[in-house]
Design a protein around this nucleic acid. Sequence first.
DNA 1: GAAATATATATCGTATTGCGTAATATATGT
DNA 2: ACATATATTACGCAATACGATATATATTTC
Lengths: 122, 122
Amino acid sequence: MRKQPAHVNIDDWTTQLKKGTLEYCILLLIRENPCYGYEIMSRLSKWPLIAVKESTVYPLLRRLQKDGCLDSYWQESAEGIPPRKYYSITQEGRHYLEMMSSEWDSLTDVLAHLRKESRSPA
Amino acid sequence: MRKQPAHVNIDDWTTQLKKGTLEYCILLLIRENPCYGYEIMSRLSKWPLIAVKESTVYPLLRRLQKDGCLDSYWQESAEGIPPRKYYSITQEGRHYLEMMSSEWDSLTDVLAHLRKESRSPA
DNA sequence: GAAATATATATCGTATTGCGTAATATATGT
DNA sequence: ACATATATTACGCAATACGATATATATTTC
């Protein structure tokens, strides 16, 4: 059982804000070079806002592969390090990424407009 | 029962992208002038990306009031038009909005960085 | 030697959100 | 009589991010 605060919590909001955005960030990372899950987690966690845990990144990668956006292959690592599952982007993934970028541009436009609008006095 | 496509769908993605963002948009609208639900729905629907239905905007307004970000009051309308429930922003709502704007700036910074990074060839 | 840490992947269950569908109520237009 | 516009509300579903946990190996620390 967890307490349900009667007040807003900015951390809860940023969790919601990540929905969809993480998928976009991960495809942007894999777009250039194949990546493995742990690597993605480490690289994204440099920005606190989009930091992710294992329980977020691994299911997301599997889903993107299931949906045809990613391919995967196993690769042995140096001694003592477990093998890594690399994900690479597919043609469909690149196409999807283009649409995402277009929608992202629209969203930032809308927000820029709303933020400016609401600042100007009536 | 609904079909579960094995491929990505940009409309499903934009639905996820709205999570959290809609809350931000609505607070930005109410920030300046008190608004009623139907009005918010109409105004947001001018941008296809953040168009909302009644089933989205009314629960959201109630939640924001429950969490202390909004106050509400009923007001009679012109003849024949049902009374309207107006929502106005509270001090806590304004404070929350400031934090949201800060997080939104961070998010756009991260995405701008990732988009630029992944375009440059290795 | 035992314990903690880093690397690396995976699963289970939960909370929250946006939304489809539908109900309710009033007045106007056709 | 029927559709449309205005306005609010309730029910239930699908998807995502995440906390907690499990597994396995090698290095570091006590």
